[in-house]
Amino acid sequence: MAKGEETRQFIIEKAAPIFNTKGIAATSMSDIMEATKLSKGSMYVHFENKEVLACAAVDHNMKMLSNKLQSALGESKTARQALFSYIDFFSNPTHPPVIGGCPLLNFGTEADDTNPIVREKVNSAIKQGQLLLSGIIEKGITDKEFKPNFNASEFATAMFAMLEGGHLMARVSGNNDKMEIVSKTLKNLIEQNSI
Rank of each mutant, 00 (worst) to 15 (best):
T109D: 09
E154L: 12
E6H: 13
E34Q: 13
A54T: 07
G74F: 10
K3L: 13
I141H: 01
G101M: 05
P93V: 06
P93C: 08
A26G: 01
H95K: 14
E34Y: 09
K14F: 08
A156P: 06
L168F: 12
A161H: 07
S39K: 02
T185E: 07
S39G: 15
V58E: 03
T7D: 02
P116Q: 07
E5V: 08
P148G: 04
T27V: 06
I18H: 07
E164Y: 03
T157C: 03
G135S: 11
G100D: 03
K184L: 05
G23T: 03
A54C: 12
N92M: 08
L73M: 08
S30Q: 14
R171G: 01
S183W: 03
D88R: 11
S71W: 08
A15K: 09
G101Q: 04
V182M: 07
A26M: 10
K22D: 01
V118L: 02
M43W: 07
N115D: 15
I126W: 01
N67D: 15
V58T: 14
L104M: 14
S153M: 09
M169T: 05
E51H: 12
E51P: 02
I99R: 12
I117V: 15
S30D: 15
S183R: 11
T27I: 07
I24A: 10
Q130A: 02
K50Q: 08
A57S: 15
G174T: 12
Q9L: 12
K40F: 03
S30N: 14
Q128R: 14
G41E: 03
I87A: 10
V182F: 04
A72T: 10
V52W: 01
T21Q: 13
A54M: 03
G4E: 06
K50P: 12
N106V: 08
T27Q: 08
G100R: 05
A26D: 14
V172L: 11
D113N: 09
N193V: 02
